[in-house]
Design a protein around this nucleic acid. Structure first.
Length: 256
DNA sequence: CTTAATGTTCCCCA
DNA sequence: TTGGGGAACATTAA
């Protein structure tokens, strides 16, 4: 699914398309999309659209819609419904659809903005990030994927950030030197900014609120590159499994 | 036919 | 209490 750069792109493209509009009706054609009680959205006005980690938060004049995009979720305006359309919100001037092929996503209605996840990587200094990392007794890959550690990073950007920082995905977080941990944060921020500027990575399904694909997948250096030469040293990129996720790295450039 | 895919949650074990 | 590992959810594509 969308990770932080994809969620950011969705938010930036979606907000101007729906801001200020009122919800006229809501339909849920597919598998149940709401976690918890089904709220009455009719009559609510869209105040803003923001990102919370890799999730999308639609702010109303009363309450918030938190959209968990899961693995294949997409928020698209004025598209033709598909068998995977799980929600259609008819607004004053357009229709907002939630498409979700694998059905892993869901909606949640919140009275207050969410606060339960770890800090956004953009809100941390590198020093604070390094301190946080030292307190986690786990492996680098696991820490970056953990939304309680920092919010927004998923499988693609974890592999890409660890490669850029020269850190092995199995490196023990509490043993990393402060300088390397700070470097990881700096590389992560640069990576996320580059990915946002290219409107995210479209691996299979991801599109923004206008249905446009991103292009950062063309800049991936290790993710999905098993067997291909490392762009730095030419060694074949390896693929292992960590936390049930495919993990791609260069054994020569990335050290524990 | 098998495996893997941008994610999360739940359950069991150490 | 914390962390590890695996299964599960549903669908497509190679």
């Amino acid at each position: 699914m969308p990770e932080l750069p994809e969620a950011e792109t969705i938010v930036r493209t979606l907000e101007p398309l729906i801001q200020g509009q009122r919800i006229l009706s809501a339909d849920y054609p597919g598998r149940r999309v709401w976690r918890g009680d089904v709220p009455e959205l009719k009559g609510l006005a869209v105040v803003n659209v923001r990102r919370y980690g890799k999730q999308v938060l639609v702010g109303f004049d009363k309450g918030h819609l938190l959209v968990r995009l899961g693995m294949t979720g997409a928020l698209i305006v004025d598209q033709i419904p598909t068998p995977y359309t799980r929600a259609v919100l008819t607004l004053s001037h357009c229709r907002l659809m939630f498409e979700d092929i694998r059905q892993f996503g869901w909606f949640e209605f919140l009275d207050e903005a969410p606060t339960q996840l770890g800090p956004d990587p953009f809100d941390l200094t590198s020093t604070a990030f390094a301190q946080r990392l030292r307190l986690r007794k786990t492996r680098a890959k696991v820490a970056l994927l953990d939304q309680q550690f920092i919010r927004g990073v998923g499988n693609i950007y974890t592999d890409e950030a660890l490669f850029r920082a020269g850190i092995h995905p199995n490196a023990h977080t509490h043993k990393l030197r402060a300088a390397r941990a700070e470097r990881l944060h700096q590389e992560l921020i640069a990576l996320l900014n580059e990915a946002i500027s290219l409107r995210g990575s479209s691996i299979s399904d991801y599109v923004d609120a206008s249905g446009e694909k991103g292009s950062f997948q063309l800049r991936h250096r290790v993710y999905g590159k098993e067997g291909e030469p490392c762009p730095v040293c030419g060694t074949a990129i390896e693929r292992i499994v960590i936390a049930q996720r495919g993990t791609h790295f260069c054994a020569r450039c990335q050290k524990a």
